[in-house]
């Protein structure tokens, strides 16, 4: 069924790892999912729930055992020869992508994808500079060895290597893990800015809802290879029990306040939103008294 609404659509996808061995494990157990252009979706869930497997299906790194994946209405596995073209248009950054940096210079590493796309040297150069700009790195580091950079910088170089392919969809697996809080925030700000500038779709696998949650339209929660909950983050936070999804501390506070009769939103998660609500109440009371 061709559709114009979604840029990517998964239809009842199944996947089993190590099929036929003692440690065979169903990783995806009938997942259907639609992604709209320019949308941001967060995928969360405990380790081993199938999040990363799902992500690798989205750009054709893994082939479903059963089910189809449509990119712009086309089944990506219909013609196996086209799978490279699909991968160029759906960029993916794995966990700790900096482990995979191996070229002599930053520029060479960023150019790896564009070179494989068959672009000319000047196009590649242009894209490298643009990608460095988007991840917030100075142009002069182009000739540095990646090994000289800090963890946060290395990660941004890895992301630049993917942005340089100018994908229509960007898939990020735990982009903030192992970074200090400001490093993590910086990455999220940059990715968000890039998404808006280019109007692409963004799918982020993460546990770090407090840092990443701010950018979200929709959250998918995976459990045992299935989509377990889906919807707005605040609604999921209000609905999911603690052992499934630990409530961010601000949400705990707001549920406590609400229990004490303070009229606040029980699904609040971010510090800014929380502060705005409390200040609003505080100012209203002050006016009333005055």
């Amino acid at each position: 069924m061709p559709d114009t609404e979604s840029i990517l659509r998964l239809n009842d996808v199944y996947h089993t790892y190590s099929y036929g061995t003692p440690w065979a494990k169903a990783a995806l157990d009938g997942v259907s999912f639609q992604l709209r252009p320019e949308e941001t979706v967060i995928v969360t869930g405990s380790n081993g729930s199938g999040k990363s497997t799902l992500l690798q299906h989205m750009n054709g790194l893994l082939k479903p055992e059963r089910g189809q994946i449509y990119f712009k209405g086309q089944d990506i596995w219909q013609d196996k020869k086209n799978i490279r073209q699909v991968r160029f248009q759906i960029g993916i950054a794995f966990q700790f992508p900096e482990y995979q940096l191996f070229h002599k210079t930053v520029a060479e590493d960023i150019a790896f994808g564009p070179k494989n796309m068959g672009l000319t040297a000047s196009q590649i150069n242009e894209r490298t500079e643009e990608a460095l700009f988007f991840v917030g790195l100075e142009q002069k580091i182009k000739d540095y060895s990646p090994q000289r950079l800090s963890t946060g910088e290395k990660r941004r170089v890895s992301l630049a290597g993917i942005i340089a392919m100018q994908p229509k969809i960007l898939l990020l697996d735990e982009p903030t893990v192992g970074l200090d809080p400001q490093g993590g925030q910086l990455i999220m700000e940059r990715m968000r800015a890039y998404q808006q500038a280019r109007g692409i779709a963004l799918v982020i696998v993460t546990h770090d809802l407090e840092n990443v949650g701010a950018v979200t339209d929709r959250v998918i929660m995976m459990k045992e290879g299935k989509i377990h909950r889906e919807g707005q983050l605040s609604k999921i936070l209000a609905g999911a029990p603690d052992d499934e999804l630990p409530k961010p501390v601000i949400t705990q506070l707001f549920q406590e306040l609400s229990a004490r009769g303070v009229p606040v939103n029980r699904g609040t998660m971010l510090v800014n939103e929380a502060a705005a609500q409390i200040l609003d109440l505080y100012n209203k009371r002050k006016e009333k008294r005055a």
Binding site: Q56, N59, L61, R84, R87, F88, G91, I92, F94, P97, Q100, F112, G113, N116, M117, G161, I162, M165
Partner: peptide
């Protein structure tokens, strides 16, 4: 996988 994702043959 990381290289395949960036179009390595």
């Amino acid at each position: 996988n990381a290289q395949k994702a960036r179009g390595a043959y």
